[in-house]
Design a protein around this nucleic acid. Structure first.
Length: 568
RNA sequence: UGGGCCGUCGCCAAGCGGUAAGGCCCCGGGUUUUGAUCCCGGUAUGCGCAGGUUCGAAUCCUGCCGGCCCAGCCA
């Protein structure tokens, strides 16, 4: 799956599994699961969880289930289950057997609930939500027993049956576990097992009007599926006693081990379904798959590859330390992948016409250039050289800073894969804007360096009459600060208005018009780009995945650096 | 004395009593028709702080300090 020889990453979960296998726990088997709730699109944090769970299963010759944790019909939707399946598949993983749903177990869950009632471990509580909150106590004060805690088993059975039959309204009654209202762990203060929700469910339709809660459902679903290691994030640490409690009370022969790890945080973005949904709903971005979004679908559209995201997941490690990973690591991962696999091409994003005065009128030369500087197996592409070409506005200045390696008046420059040209004169409009350059070329410099002179740089270019117009979208980080969801300010106030810059008159090499949507390229000297789905046959659209690393722009003494592209 | 968890380089992260791996970022230098790639080299006398145990402590003990999570009929 990965080109690189996998260096078995050491982490505490693997230590636990290694120990379990050594002790022949679970007959030495490993079975994991990825349990998303279909209430939004998956983001980079989920990607890490997917890579962890499926990766663990793969490395230990086990299997991994995909199970939708669908116990809250209010927030869930088929659109999300479809997108989640697509994302998991795209990342390169195959789930065991068919997709599973917690709702597959609603009947069994109901039976176990009846067992709990019969054992005196659960009761129907008729406190209103407000009253229940008061009875629950606070973080520092114990709660009080519900007055309904002592209902008889018969009464509970009858009430619960009626709840299921729809005889009550939402909020009238709930089924609660009878544990300990004085527990320091809020989750153990008689947690709710079932609540009434008169809502159609995307899998079970109108079959049910009572729905089980997460804590009750998750552990039993894991056990029913024979999961050995139930990996989840840190915030569920407090829920583990409850996870274990339910499995200890019911008659079931499997007791998976819940293990918590720190969720992935990335700087300059947000990874909370609620906030991502807000960005979509308020049209701050253009949908869940906007290339600026940290969603899997966003990264896919941005041009990230599955391998790069898997690599990133592995490099960030698995621990219980709640940290925030630098975006630069993700950028490193995609650059590394694309450096090896993306074909090279030239695209002039901000065209500036260059007329080569001593180049023969109407002459056309067909040149050839490698698609990759090192991997010759990728073959060549052809270029057209002629009297009029375009170079990038940013590759010319009349006032060059020290060590400038682009074109300037009276100096020579190498046209990548073509001749050396020299700038003879500059044409400007009334406002003083540079509109055209007149150059001369040295016919002796195709494929070889001029004798006795050193050319100070190389710039990319494209033929004026044999190139195509294209739209190029440059993306930058979505937020202007590292932790947009920091303290006391709305995260939206940190939105980066320059996160999308669109260039509508870019010019691409002739061959690039044949590119496929989703195909990755390196626009030489600019960055990695991918053809977007918004392309038409006449007008291709390219998204910038990431820039090339650039040591020049970072130099503090480089006064030319500012207006040029930013990271991203 | 509410409960749970976490603190090793700017960011991740190994380490599990024998004297601080690695990656990213960053900084030098070399090669280069991409200011890319690639290649060399550099970057924690110290592991939140303070004591203690020990021949020896990031690793064990004690006490502090700092951070995160929990009071949804959400997951």
């Amino acid at each position: 799956m990965n080109d690189k020889t996998a260096v078995a990453p050491s982490n505490f979960i693997r230590h636990i599994i290694d120990e379990d296998i050594k002790n022949n726990k679970n007959q030495g088997k490993v079975k994991t699961r990825f349990p998303p709730e279909p209430n939004g699109y998956l983001h980079i944090g989920h990607a890490k969880s997917i890579c962890l769970n499926f990766g663990l299963a793969k490395d230990y010759q086990g299997v991994c289930n995909l199970r939708f944790d669908d116990t809250n019909p209010e927030k869930e939707d088929m659109e999300y289950v479809d997108s989640i399946k697509e994302d998991v598949t795209w990342l390169g993983f195959k789930w065991f057997e068919d997709v599973k749903y917690s709702s597959d177990y609603f009947d069994k869950l109901y039976q176990y609930a009846i067992d709990l009632i019969k054992d005196g471990k659960a009761y129907v509580c008729s406190l209103s939500p407000e009253q229940a909150r008061e009875y629950r106590g606070s973080l520092t004060e114990p709660g009080k027993d519900s007055p309904y805690r002592s209902r008889t088993i018969e009464e509970n059975l009858e009430l619960f049956e009626k709840m299921k039959q729809g005889k009550f309204d939402e909020g009238e009654h709930v089924l609660r576990a009878k544990i300990d209202m004085a527990s320091g762990n809020m989750n153990m203060r008689d947690p709710i097992i079932y609540r009434i929700r008169k809502e159609a469910h995307h899998q079970t339709g109108n079959q049910w009007c009572i729905y089980p809660m997460y804590d009750y459902t998750h552990c039993i679903s894991d056990a029913l599926e024979g999961i050995t290691h139930s990996v989840c994030t840190l915030e569920f640490e407090d829920h583990r006693p409850l996870y274990d409690w339910f499995l200890d009370q019911i008659d079931i022969d499997c007791h998976p081990q819940q293990i918590e790890f720190a969720r992935l945080n990335l700087n300059y973005t947000v990874t909370s379904k609620r906030k991502l949904k807000q960005l979509v709903d308020e049209n701050i971005v253009n949908g869940w798959d906007d290339p600026r979004m940290p969603t899997i679908s966003g990264f896919r559209r941005r041009g990230y590859t599955p391998a790069s995201i898997r690599d990133f997941s592995e490099r960030t490690g698995v621990t219980k330390v709640d940290g925030i990973v630098d975006m630069s690591l993700l950028e490193f991962c995609i650059r590394e992948d694309l450096e090896h696999h993306a074909a090279r091409t030239m695209c002039v994003i901000r065209p500036l016409k260059v007329i080569i005065d001593n180049y023969e009128e109407d002459k056309i030369e067909k040149l050839s250039a490698p698609k990759h500087p090192k991997n010759t197996d990728m073959g060549n592409r052809s270029l057209i050289m002629e009297k009029e070409i375009y170079i990038d506005h940013q590759d010319f200045t009349e006032d060059p800073p020290p060590k400038y390696k682009r074109l300037t008046t009276g100096k020579e420059i190498r046209l990548r894969n073509s001749y050396v040209i020299k700038c003879e004169s500059v044409v400007k409009d009334e406002q003083g804007n540079i509109t055209e350059l007149h150059c001369s070329y040295d016919p002796e410099t195709l494929g070889k360096n001029p004798e006795g002179r050193k050319v100070q740089g190389v710039i990319h270019w494209v033929s004026a009459n044999h190139s195509h117009v294209a739209v190029v979208k440059e993306y930058d980080r979505l937020f202007t600060v590292e932790k947009p969801d920091g303290q006391n300010q709305d995260f939206l106030s940190f939105y980066n208005p320059n996160s999308l810059v669109e260039h509508t008159s870019a010019r691409i090499e002739p061959d690039l018009i044949k590119a496929q949507v989703g195909e990755n390229f390196q626009f030489e000297r600019e960055g990695y780009f991918v053809k977007d789905k918004d392309s038409s046959d006449e007008l291709p659209v390219f998204n910038r995945t990431v820039t090339l690393r650039d040591n020049w722009e970072k130099k503090p003494d480089n006064k030319d650096a500012k207006p040029r592209r930013r990271r991203g």
